[in-house]
Design a protein around this nucleic acid. Structure first.
Length: 1139
RNA sequence: GCGCGGGUAGCUUAGUCGGCUGGAGCACCCGGCUGAUAACCGGGAGGUCGCAGGUUCAAGUCCUGCCUCGCGCACCA
């Protein structure tokens, strides 16, 4: 059995807070086996700094040093060595960019849950990770080294380039580490997983081979935006960098039907794709018309045209838009009746038919619309995504007409061959509009109907500014569509926060899942481990040893190969250098791709352990993981690839709980991004308010999944309100505890024997803690923390401490003082533990000072389920867990009563404002009308209200009258549409008492509706003419109206007392202004004008309150010095001098 | 275009099953309290609950349409 914290190991690193195992008498940290057990459980409580001197930043940074020396993070894990595991998986960031405040937010939520679970007794290992491959890294390096094309990179040398990438990924590692440490995100950065490590890559290869063996990996084409200048295809991210609005020629082309005199009209904005045309797509449910040109058009501009009598087919909706001729509609029909019709190729030699039976026919596609064009979509298989998919489904020939360098392939057309496609627009227009058309068989007017300039946004290369071509590239895919049902099933089992991300956004994505295009024509990444010969035979390599044996086989078969050592670098260009041999003796070369870097991070659950080559046990025990947490932008990123990989490789889900965080916006609501330059530097706040306030602000500013407008003032506010207040509560307790030598373990104080004020705050503590915990469980961290902050500021600081101050001023060792000290001690230790997961610094200082033990190994006040025998992260014995909770008893009645007392104290101030009576002038009497018994708080109330005495008035009618309010819920079904009229009569009854009597006797009827007691709500309000106010407590039938009435009559005694209080207040302010010590004495002289007589007692009170050693009271103002301080109150003027 | 989530006071936000007068905090103004506090308390001013319809005796809340912001997806023939 482990006992926490109270013993000291003699090893220097274990000076404080270490643990030792009682049975083996060994220190569990250093395992030296020598534990020095102290007789006293704790060092004397250190006297803390006063709040005025509080330097939160210094407090945090010195604590960071202490944590480092103590190895506090590791110890917090070790102390739960025997606890149930709670598995967290870190989503690896890329360290080639500077961390911003948005990274702090994500790390705060990761840390919060891990610390919370640790305090609950779970063992929460936290391995760091770095994402090091991929496009952003390459782009960064390309920019820096001015290698703006694949040619340039290859000229520079792929090995040099990849070395530069390898170096580049660590550019900001230090910045990340510093940020991580400073914000106290506890994660193991000394043994992180790194996606570029050979071990990691080997695990990725293994996973890929699992997919390959299951037939889930295949080779195909993907149409991608491609730049012929740089020779690279672009991700959507890069495409977005280069959208430009351009005007280009678009053309309406006539496709001459075979065995029919009509042509089908189709439209395209990319004339260069026309030689590649092999099909026309129509919407099966779109209505088309066949029209005959009846008259030549006037004012024709541009190329093209049609002759009278010529027939064309197009969508009915677009006739007006497209046709410039007057026409006669011959026929109307749905698109489906066009399907299968054959037409003549525009460029007959450009594409071979092969064995296709569908080439140059009309096909149907449900995505065809009539928003643009002619309602007929020209289909060039290799140059559009829809075109390609349609082509594959329909069996169209898939041949390029354009080379990788952007020029037409030889054989397309003599006038086009070898020319850059974007320069051929006019040539194509000319060819089509020539008599007989490009194929020499067209009708008299040519194959072009119209040309039209078209303005649109078109993607351009962000590096060379050239227009991109959509181009079908060789590509590798993972057949995700084959495991769609499993993906959905596994997703159903995930606990998502918020649930709508899982059901909605992510579920939607999975229901429409497409095969995952996993290959990239890039250099820096995990190489695709597939080798292929020219017959299409393939081998997927799943490990280094397999590569070695395959290389050996190839060498034996006569193919030369470089050495393949155990530590072979699994990157390009090394792996490209190996030639393997196929079963039939042919050379196999590696497919020249790297993997989508999302595949790397999707392998993290096992690749971080080098599974299956190492760490099998670690992996088995930690998969699937219990908790991941990232920004909502990872929905289609990491959240997806984790699930995609785990489903295809293990047929299991990857994670059980996922917290999806909202985006971080700047104060104006704009997304934080490098390009906008609006990223908030976390150090601005770390160095000003500290990480505690920054983290607490982030969590309380809104629900984790909502977008957070990061407001720097909010951090300031949080610091002032939450942390200064907490510190002051602590200081108040610690100062007096130190003076009195208070030791919570050397004295006891039964809660049941403590004052009602103590029992109230302890009950509030228990209630708040329970709600806090419940909100944590429901992922409502924002609600939890807002409520706790309210408890600390409102209940503890502004009521409990304020009301308790005089209790601790007592020099004698009273039981009441002791009760107060125990209460404060219990509040602070519990509150510190509750706050610790969110803001770990200040609470640790406080907790250490109060208990001698770090808060980060303390038990969660609501119990430690992780420490229970047989518990798992999801399941434990509730009863046993409840037994480990440590909270004071609750008394909800007391809480309600105190709420009322506080409300009445506030009401009193309101009454005075209304009546124009100043706060310091006492009232002779206050009456409380109805309500629960609160006799025990009368003294508090009298003080707060500044009344001489409080009385309970039992004759309700003396100060209160009745008001009736309609109960709509009961009344509406009875009165129906008359409900408002009936309600009005009830509300505005001239004599509500009489009305009530008639209701209660059952004889009341209004507008034909009989009214019973359930139809009205009885309220008591103060009678007019009294200085009074009424509050309502409770809800519905249990609600009660309580009035407070103040006696506004003045007596000589009251006036004297009031004046004395005003004078005292001014003198105290003066003392403060003069910076006098609390113990310092003064000489006092006072002159007055128009003042009430002051009683001897009240003069004495002034003298004692202000610590005056000498005091002179003049009853006039004649000799008052001109220069002295004076004030006026209620027509009285007072001059006073303090020396 | 489709999906998800927002739009409430100058700013940040709460608002449960539709119910009577839509709450807080910051900032502002007036007043008060105060020898733990950079805090606190009372009052004031500040609201077309994005807009328009609808359902209902009753709508910030439910329904429909629209505007707008964010994110994601698709499309750009």
């Amino acid at each position: 059995m482990l006992v926490k914290g109270l013993q000291t190991c003699v090893e220097t690193l274990c000076v404080d807070n270490s643990l030792y195992d009682v049975q083996t008498a060994q220190c569990v940290v250093c395992l030296k086996g020598e534990v020095q057990v102290k007789t006293s459980s704790r060092l004397a409580m250190a006297r803390p700094q006063s709040a005025g001197e509080l330097d939160a930043v210094a407090l945090e940074t010195s604590l960071l040093d202490a944590w480092k020396k103590e190895n506090a993070f590791q110890q917090s894990i070790d102390s739960n060595r025997n606890g149930a595991p709670f598995i967290f998986l870190e989503g690896p960031p890329t360290a080639n960019g500077k961390p911003g405040i948005h990274h702090v937010v994500a790390r705060a939520y990761k840390d919060l849950v891990c610390r919370w679970k640790t305090m609950e007794g779970f063992r929460v290992e936290r391995k760091g990770g770095w994402d090091t491959h991929g496009l952003p890294v390459e782009i960064e390096v390309q920019k820096r080294m001015d290698l703006m094309s694949n040619e340039a990179i290859e000229a520079y040398g792929m090995d040099n380039f990849n070395q530069a990438c390898r170096d580049s990924v660590w550019t900001y590692e230090t910045a990340w580490r510093e940020m991580t440490e400073r914000m106290a995100y506890w994660v193991d950065l000394d043994n992180p997983y790194v996606t570029l490590d050979n071990d990691y890559v080997e695990s990725c290869w293994w996973a890929m081979k699992q997919m390959f063996d299951k037939g889930l990996l295949y080779r195909g084409h993907k149409v991608l935006p491609y730049c012929p200048q740089t020779g690279t295809s672009y991700s959507s991210h890069e495409v977005a960098l280069g959208y430009k609005e351009v005007e280009e020629p678009s053309v309406y082309v006539k496709f001459k039907l075979i065995d029919d005199s009509a042509s089908i009209l189709a439209w395209t904005t990319t004339p260069w794709t026309l030689p590649g045309n092999v099909g026309l797509a129509v919407g099966p449910n779109v209505t088309y018309v066949r029209v005959k040109v009846s008259e030549q058009a006037e004012n024709w501009t541009g190329a093209g045209g049609a002759s009278v009598g010529e027939e064309v087919i197009l969508a009915k909706d677009l006739m007006k838009e497209v046709l410039r001729h007057n026409v006669e509609v011959l026929e109307e029909f749905p698109g489906s009746s066009l399907v299968g019709r054959a037409y003549e190729p525009l460029f007959s030699k450009a594409v071979p038919r092969g064995d296709s039976t569908t080439a140059w026919t009309v096909l149907e596609a449900d995505w065809v619309t009539t928003t643009d064009g002619t309602g007929v979509v020209h289909t060039a298989v290799m140059y559009g995504e829809d075109d390609y998919n349609l082509g594959m489904a329909a069996g169209l020939p898939a041949y390029h007409t354009v080379d990788m360098d952007g020029s037409f392939l030889v054989g397309t057309h003599p006038k086009l061959d070898g020319r850059y496609v974007k320069e051929c627009d006019q040539t194509i227009i000319d060819l089509l509009s020539a008599p007989h058309g490009s194929n020499g068989k067209g009708p008299e007017s040519g194959l072009l109907y119209r040309e039209k300039a078209y303005l649109h946004d078109y993607p351009h290369c962000w590096r060379t500014d050239h227009p991109l071509l959509y181009y079908a590239m060789d590509s590798w895919f993972v057949r995700m569509t084959a495991v769609k049902e499993r993906l959905l099933e596994f997703n159903d089992g995930v606990e998502w926060a918020p649930d709508w991300v899982g059901e909605g956004r992510f579920g939607e994505w999975l229901r429409n899942v497409k095969d995952w295009a996993i290959s990239r024509e890039r250099y820096w990444g995990t190489p695709l481990p597939v080798w292929r010969d020219d017959e299409g035979n393939m081998k997927c390599i799943g490990s280094i040893s397999e590569l070695q044996s395959e290389v050996a086989r190839a060498v034996a078969a006569g193919f030369e190969n470089p050495d393949c050592p155990d530590d072979v670098d699994l990157h390009r260009p090394v792996v490209d250098g190996y030639t393997l041999v196929s079963e039939n003796g042919k050379p196999m070369h590696r497919e020249p791709f790297v993997m989508d870097c999302w595949f790397d991070s999707g392998c993290a659950p096992f690749a971080q352990w080098h599974h299956p080559f190492d760490g099998a046990e670690t992996f088995d025990a930690s998969f699937p993981v219990d908790y991941i947490c990232e920004g909502v932008d990872q929905t289609r990123g990491w959240f997806y690839t984790l699930l995609a990989v785990s489903t295809t490789v293990f047929d299991k889900p990857a994670y059980k709980r996922c917290l999806s965080l909202g985006l971080i916006l700047d104060a104006e609501g704009k997304k934080m991004s490098k390009s906008r330059g609006n990223i908030v530097d976390p150090w601005d706040h770390f160095n000003r308010e500290g990480a505690d306030a920054t983290r607490w602000y982030m969590v309380t500013a809104g629900a984790p999944w909502n977008p957070l407008k990061f407001d720097s003032n909010g951090v300031r506010e949080t610091y002032a309100k939450m942390f200064l207040t907490l510190w002051n509560i602590y200081k108040f307790h610690a100062d007096y505890a130190a003076i009195d030598g208070f030791d919570p373990e050397q004295s006891t104080s039964e809660v049941s024997s403590r004052s009602s004020l103590d029992r109230w705050i302890l009950s509030r503590l228990a209630t708040t803690a329970e709600n806090y915990h419940a909100d944590f469980k429901g992922w409502n961290f924002h609600k939890a923390c807002r409520d706790l902050e309210d408890f600390i500021v409102n209940d503890v600081s502004n009521w409990y401490v304020r009301r308790s101050r005089r209790r601790l001023w007592d020099d004698a060792e009273t039981t009441d003082k002791l009760a107060c000290q125990h209460t404060l001690h219990e509040i602070l230790t519990t509150v510190c533990r509750l706050i610790a997961p969110v803001s770990p610094f200040m609470v640790d200082v406080i907790h250490r000072n109060l208990t001698g033990m770090t808060v980060h190994q303390a038990a969660w006040p609501l119990g430690t389920p992780g420490s229970i025998e047989g518990a798992t992260a999801d399941n434990w014995d509730e009863e046993a867990a409840a037994a480990t909770a440590r909270l004071p008893p609750k008394d909800l009645t007391l809480e309600a009563t105190m709420a009322l007392v506080r409300e009445l104290a506030e009401v009193g101030r309101r009454i005075r404002v209304d009546a124009g009576r100043r706060q310091r002038l006492p009232c002779a009497q206050g009456w409380i009308v109805s309500g629960p018994d609160m006799t025990e708080f009368h003294d508090i109330l009298a003080e707060e209200l500044n009344v001489e005495s409080i009385e309970v008035e039992n004759d309700l009618d003396r100060f209160q009258q009745i008001e009736l309010a309609p109960n709509f819920r009961a009344l509406a079904p009875k009165a129906r549409s008359e409900v408002n009229a009936v309600a009005g009569q009830i509300k505005n009854a001239e004599n509500p008492t009489e009305l009530l009597a008639s209701i209660q006797s059952g004889t009341c009827e209004i507008m034909g509706v009989s009214i019973d007691e359930g139809d009205v709500e009885i309220r008591r309000v103060e009678r007019e003419g009294f200085a009074a106010s009424t509050v309502t407590i409770g809800q519905g039938e249990d609600s009660q109206q309580i009035s407070l009435v103040l006696d506004m009559n003045d007596t000589d005694e009251l006036l004297s007392k009031g004046l004395a209080r005003d004078i005292t207040r001014r003198i105290q302010a003066k003392r403060k202004e003069l910076n006098l010590e609390i113990e310092a004495t003064i000489d006092l002289e006072i002159w007055v004008k128009n003042a009430p007589d002051m009683f001897e007692d009240d003069q004495q009170w002034i003298v004692s309150e202000t610590r005056a050693s000498a005091a002179v009271f003049h009853s006039d103002s004649e000799n008052a010095p001109q220069e002295t301080d004076s004030f006026e109150v209620d027509g009285t003027t007072v001059w006073f001098s303090v020396r």
